[in-house]
């Protein structure tokens, strides 16, 4: 775990070192304009020409101090930018992840139980289309159809009316997650406003990410249904629903859990694109902007952050895996 984290930091650092010094200086410059002549002295001042190991340890030291440099795109220190953007992303993750998992498992089970029937072909086509469609294109199409043609589900995170409520001194922003804040404030208008803006991005992510889970769930459920104990249960005349839901599905879930870590990687990528399309000011959009405007500090921070999140998620997946499959716990 620690080793992997060190590895992640090394890769991020290596990527950073590929960037010319003149651009890396931007990490340390806060706000003010600098002239070309100054760049050289700044490079020396921040030791950007030191040997790589020295720079690496200095960088790590700064990270532990919570100093990630200055972000041009957020026009604030990176950590402030993060506090601003992260809740928006978290909110989308909060709504889409359970849906992705549920839809994937549900469709996969249906496909397996009705193998080679029309409904199975339908779910298979859904899956193939799901992972063939470019995230950005599906998003654009959704937006064109719903917002463009029907005029509903606009892009952004909140309407103008919602913004007024948001900056009202009586409205407290506890978590900065819009829907949760709305509930805590008892402001239902705000809640529906946020949900209204969340709908399309969530649909986009669910359509694309659940395909992977669905596919695996289908094949692993078919595998489970072919086992001897299922035949035994069938022969004993057990209720079909019980067989599917408790006997087969529980065992079929095991490989699905291992892949869900992988799904998260896809979700993070999908998040960058989804937020860009639907103009949601989360870390995905921040990264996309930072990438086009060479905001080195923001890019590196986000890669590091998402890398760490990903490592932690994989650890959690391993723990769940051991919990679901006792065979692993015992060995």
């Amino acid at each position: 775990m620690i080793l992997v984290l060190v590895g992640v930091s090394l890769i991020v650092f290596a990527i950073m070192m590929l960037i010319p010094e003149g651009q890396r200086v931007a990490i340390y410059v806060t706000g003010e304009k600098i002239r070309n002549e100054q760049i050289d002295s700044l490079i020396v001042k921040y030791g950007l020409r030191d040997p790589a190991p020295v720079q690496y340890f200095r960088w790590i030291k700064n990270i532990f101090k919570g100093d990630f440099g200055h972000s041009i795109t957020a026009s604030a220190p990176v950590i402030e930018g993060f506090k601003m953007y992260f809740p928006v992303t978290l909110e989308l993750v909060l709504y889409s992840t359970p849906l992705i998992i549920l839809v994937g498992i549900w469709l996969g089970t249906i496909g397996a139980v009705h193998k080679d029937k029309p409904i199975d072909h339908f779910t298979r086509i859904f899956a193939i289309v799901g992972y063939s469609l470019p995230t950005f294109w599906l998003g654009l199409m959704l937006m064109m159809f719903f917002y463009g043609l029907l005029g509903i589900f606009p892009p952004g995170t909140i309407s103008i009316v919602g913004k007024d409520i948001l900056y009202n001194p009586e409205y407290h922003q506890y978590t900065r997650i819009l829907t949760i804040d709305a509930i805590l404030n008892g402001n239902w208008r705000m809640f529906w406003d946020a949900i209204y803006h969340l709908t399309l991005p969530t649909i986009n992510l669910v359509l694309l990410s659940s395909a992977l889970i669905m596919r695996l769930m289908r094949s692993s459920m078919i595998d489970a249904l072919g086992q001897d104990y299922i035949r035994t249960a069938m022969a004993k005349g057990a209720d079909k629903k019980t067989i599917y839901n408790t006997h087969a599905r529980r065992n079929a879930l095991i490989p699905v859990i291992t892949i869900s870590g992988l799904m998260f990687a896809g979700l993070m990528g999908g998040m960058v694109i989804t937020e860009t399309i639907f103009a949601r000011k989360g870390i995905g959009l921040w990264m996309a902007r930072a990438a086009t405007q060479l905001d080195v500090a923001a890019i590196m921070f986000n890669v590091l952050f998402l890398g760490v999140v990903f490592v932690v998620i994989n650890l959690i997946v391993d723990l769940i895996y051991a919990w679901v499959d006792p065979r692993i716990r015992l060995t």
């Binding site: 992997v4 991020v12 960058v272 990903f310 490592v311």
Partner: peptide, 23 residues
């Protein structure tokens, strides 16, 4: 295998973005 572990520990598109910016 440890090197591939490191690569696996990073979300693909996000790292790809950073690398393209760097190159």
């Amino acid at each position: 295998m440890r090197i591939t572990d490191m690569f696996y520990a990073l979300p693909f598109l996000v790292v790809a973005m950073a690398l393209v910016v760097a190159l």
